[in-house]
Amino acid sequence: SKGEELFTGVVPILVELDGDVNGHKFSVSGEGEGDATYGKLTLKFICTTGKLPVPWPTLVTTLSYGVQCFSRYPDHMKQHDFFKSAMPEGYVQERTIFFKDDGNYKTRAEVKFEGDTLVNRIELKGIDFKEDGNILGHKLEYNYNSHNVYIMADKQKNGIKVNFKIRHNIEDGSVQLADHYQQNTPIGDGPVLLPDNHYLSTQSALSKDPNEKRDHMVLLEFVTAAGITHGMDELYK
């Protein structure tokens, strides 16, 4: 796709999030870079409003799984890469995230190029959380598991539907599940690639910047598309 050509090198990323969870309002600002050749993201996020009212790991899918245009699609799968094909005009990404036995996040993001920078601007609203639950009670460990993110075409809306389940580790050794339902639709009216069913395999590492006084998260992530085999004719070339 034409959009794919915008991702040949390292691309700067800007992320802006405004959130409200159970009436606790907050903002997060992030910057870093993405390299789609390797499916690599390096980002640093800062809570610009003081202390973040929710655990950082609960925002990873909104912040970095928010820029799935940096996923590495192998050559034989490039015609299934909706995310890059929607660029530079970008796409709207909407999600509902259900935390098992707790509340939910609803998010709406616009992901697009502004100049040479890929920008992810998000509004997040969280409701029905227990004040002493795993999320508002800050009981999650500061780490992140690997996940597969399942993608299918949504021809009606000229976009994709995505769903997956995140496993958050809790300090007591148990797990907090979070079910994600995602819809992506193009902002522009140019042609986009509608994929066959496949998935993104994601690995994320969270860390801290020892010199950063503000509440923050440093993230390194690798994302690769998989799940579609080479056609038989490919094998015999």
Rank of each mutant, 00 (worst) to 15 (best):
T224N: 08
K165R: 12
D101A: 06
D189V: 07
F70Y: 03
G137A: 08
V10A: 12
V162A: 15
K51Q: 03
R108C: 07
E16A: 07
H168P: 00
E110Q: 15
K165Q: 12
V192L: 06
G126C: 04
H80P: 02
I46N: 02
F164S: 03
T61I: 00
H180P: 01
T48A: 04
Q182R: 00
L41R: 03
K100R: 10
L177I: 15
K112R: 11
E171A: 08
K78M: 11
Y105N: 01
A178P: 01
K44R: 08
D75E: 11
F83L: 10
N134I: 05
D75N: 09
Y199D: 02
E5K: 14
G30V: 00
R121H: 05
C69Y: 03
Q93P: 01
G23S: 03
A205D: 06
T202S: 03
S201R: 11
D20H: 05
D189A: 06
K155M: 06
N134D: 10
E31D: 10
P57H: 03
K78N: 04
F98V: 11
P53S: 01
S29Y: 14
Q156H: 10
F26I: 01
L6Q: 06
Y199S: 07
H147L: 03
V60E: 00
G231D: 15
K25R: 09
D132Y: 05
G188S: 11
D215E: 08
F99L: 02
P88A: 03
K112G: 12
N145I: 10
I122A: 02
H138P: 02
K51R: 09
S27C: 12
T229A: 10
E131K: 09
L52Q: 00
K2E: 08
Y150N: 08
S29C: 15
S174T: 15
S204C: 07
D20G: 01
I170T: 14
P186S: 13
G23A: 02
S201I: 07
H230Q: 13
E221D: 03
L63M: 09
N143S: 11
E89D: 11
V60M: 01
E234D: 04
R121S: 05
G159S: 09
L6V: 06
L17P: 00
K78E: 05
D101V: 01
K51T: 11
T224I: 06
L235R: 11
V192E: 07
S71R: 00
D209N: 03
K130Q: 11
L220V: 15
D179H: 09
D101E: 09
V60L: 04
T42A: 13
A178S: 06
N211K: 11
K25M: 08
H80L: 14
K213Q: 04
P74T: 15
G231R: 10
M232A: 13
H80D: 06
Y65N: 00
N148Y: 07
T117K: 08
L140Q: 03
F164H: 03
G188D: 09
A225D: 02
Q176L: 14
M217R: 01
G34S: 01
P12S: 01
Y181S: 05
V111E: 00
F82L: 02
D35Y: 02
F45I: 03
Y91C: 02
I122L: 05
G115D: 08
A178T: 07
T62P: 03
V92I: 12
N145S: 13
K2T: 07
A205T: 15
R72L: 15
E94G: 03
L63P: 00
L124Q: 00
Y144H: 05
S204A: 09
K44T: 13
A36S: 07
D75A: 08
S85Y: 08
E94A: 07
P186T: 13
P186H: 04
D233G: 11
T49S: 11
V15D: 00
Q183R: 14
K130T: 07
M87L: 13
N134T: 04
D233V: 06
Y65F: 00
E131G: 05
R121L: 05
F45L: 10
N145K: 05
K208T: 12
S29A: 13
Y199F: 13
I13V: 04
I13F: 02
T61P: 15
Y142N: 05
Y144S: 08
V10K: 04
K84M: 02
D132A: 04
A205S: 07
H80Y: 14
V92F: 15
E4G: 13
K165M: 14
S207R: 09
R108H: 05
V175M: 13
V21A: 02
N163G: 12
S207G: 08
D116E: 11
V28A: 01
N148D: 13
L52M: 05
E171G: 12
S201C: 15
L14R: 13
D35G: 02
V162E: 15
K165E: 13
D196G: 10
F83C: 05
N143D: 11
G227W: 10
F82I: 03
E94D: 07
V10L: 05
K44M: 03
I127F: 14
Y181N: 07
E16K: 13
P210A: 09
G188C: 15
L14P: 00
K130R: 12
N184D: 07
E141A: 10
I127V: 12
T229I: 09
T62A: 06
V10G: 05
V67A: 10
N163D: 12
H180Y: 04
H216L: 00
D233H: 10
G159R: 10
D20V: 10
H180R: 00
Q79L: 13
Y199C: 12
V175A: 12
G137E: 07
F222L: 09
S27I: 05
Y144N: 07
L206P: 03
H147Q: 07
F82S: 01
I166N: 04
I160F: 02
L14V: 14
K106E: 07
D233Y: 15
M152K: 08
I166S: 12
V54A: 01
A109S: 15
L52R: 02
Y91N: 01
K51N: 09
A225V: 05
V192A: 11
F129S: 00
K51E: 11
Y150D: 07
P12A: 02
Q68H: 06
N158K: 13
N197Y: 04
E171K: 10
E141V: 07
P53T: 02
G173D: 10
T37A: 11
K51G: 03
